[in-house]
Amino acid sequence: MGSNDEPEEVPRRDFLGMAVGGSAAAFAVAGGYPFLRFVDPPAQQPSGPVNIGKLEEFPVGSARTVVVDERPVLVIRTGDGFRAFSALCTHLQCVVAYSAERNQIECPCHRGIYSMDGRNIGGPPPRPLQELSVTVNTGSVIVSAV
């Protein structure tokens, strides 16, 4: 039946088709924008200071990995006091551990080595470990992101 149409009918039909398609696309973009934003997860909020235990649970010269904000944190107590580092290696996010005999922090995955103040001193790690602040309040050890 299209062959009987007047000549100007063809461009008008195309124009109307494009108008429908264009406005549908525009409405889809505007209406879909909130949904795209929803799917994008929000940044994780630090939960503030976390009580990780009693002072007695951390003898001098010991190290423990605790979980703060669902991430591992290495808490070391030396004669000078407490230090806490994110236990995630800055190379590829393996969990690091404290070695008492060599007195350094080591990453088991690719032999990354950090000094006791978190500096990257050997192996592939590109950056020092992220440090967290530790305070002791009436016998409780409290870790908070700096």
């Binding site: 909130p34 929803f38 994008d40």
Partner: peptide, 9 residues
């Protein structure tokens, strides 16, 4: 409350 446009979805 926290996710963007979550209330809407």
């Amino acid at each position: 409350g926290e996710i963007e446009y979550g209330n809407l979805v």
